[in-house]
């Protein structure tokens, strides 16, 4: 019962935000309205899933925002001009993430410290590559992000597809259970003969891959890049995971919840507050307030009743 209530909480908060928007501005609830409101949702969804893979292993990635920015810059320069070089660089990024996972596991380092350090590395590389905003997204990327499917707006279709892929991969496959088990009780997984090093590398590589996709999606929408473009994503992604029913420790994550959480964050971040006529100066603070309210509700539900 409690479990079911917690599982529906992300959907409930999304519904609440939607209801508020519908009440404030009924015209927003339309094909065109959603396409506009969820314009930037896909990169946020992807970055949130990247964060979720890291959190599943009891770590935290503070570099995801800077990383998304770096990927944007690579996509808007190398990937457009020299496709093979860009592809190689992006694959290299995933490999670096896997190596970070190995480093964190082998040296027993706090992931917060390592990824905080890496955030400056990514940011520095991005500025080297693109000192001032510019570049251009490859045409095919723009085309993909500009698809207009019939009836259902593209961001919703894409979010559902991404959620399904992540859900099957992490929650339904047999190795996915091992990956989540590492967050729940690493000793038990190790005793059963699994390699924790490999599991951590896989989790971080998945985070890297989703981060790359997030950056590419972002540049496909904005069509040009800026080294600072992804800076807000670190916090948004963590908030999305937690909003979606994940826990910082214990390997309790939910891909579907994280996607819903990311959509909620994307909607609450700007469209809702704009409709509420909250001036832009106050929007960041209002965003934080929404987050606190939802998280408090979650804790209350989680605590109800002793274990039986």
């Amino acid at each position: 019962m409690r479990r079911r209530l917690r599982a529906t909480l992300p959907a409930l908060s999304l519904a609440l935000v939607l209801a508020a928007i519908a009440w404030l501005n009924p015209r927003a609830i339309s094909y065109f309205g959603f396409t506009l409101m969820l314009n930037l949702a896909i990169p946020i969804v992807l970055a949130t899933l990247a964060q979720m893979f890291v959190i599943a292993g009891n770590d935290l990635d503070l570099s995801i925002g800077a990383f998304v920015g770096f990927v944007c810059c690579v996509s808007a320069t190398w990937l457009k001009d020299e496709a093979w070089l860009g592809a190689l660089a992006l694959i290299g990024c995933v490999a670096v993430y896997a190596a970070l996972g190995a480093l964190i596991y082998l040296r027993n380092l706090p992931s917060i410290v390592v990824t905080l350090g890496m955030s400056f590395v990514w940011q520095g590389l991005a500025i080297l590559l693109l000192p001032k905003p510019g570049g251009a997204a490859p045409g095919w990327l723009r085309a993909v992000m500009g698809v207009k499917p019939p009836l259902i707006p593209f961001p919703i279709v894409a979010a559902a597809l991404i959620a399904a892929i992540a859900y099957v991969g992490l929650m339904r496959t047999s190795y996915g259970a091992i990956l989540r088990g590492c967050g729940g009780n690493a000793v038990a997984i190790e005793r059963a003969g699994w390699s924790l090093l490999r599991a951590k590398m896989v989790l971080f590589a998945l985070a890297g891959a989703f981060g790359v996709l997030s950056g590419m999606a972002l540049v496909g929408i904005t069509t040009s890049a800026d080294a600072n473009i992804g800076n807000g994503y670190t916090l948004l992604s963590i908030a999305g995971v937690i909003l979606g029913g994940g826990e910082f420790v214990g390997g309790a994550v939910s891909p579907v919840g994280a996607v819903i959480g990311a959509l909620t964050m994307a909607m609450a971040a700007s469209p809702l507050l704009t409709f509420m006529h909250i001036p832009p100066d106050w929007q960041v603070a209002a965003n934080g307030a929404i987050l606190i309210i939802v998280l408090a509700a979650r804790v209350l539900i989680g605590r109800k009743g002793p274990e039986r």
């Binding site: 989540r180 967050g183 009780n185 038990a188 390997g251």
Partner: peptide
Amino acid sequence: SLCPNLTVAE
């Protein structure tokens, strides 16, 4: 040595 976040089957 069970993983508390996994189901019995997992």
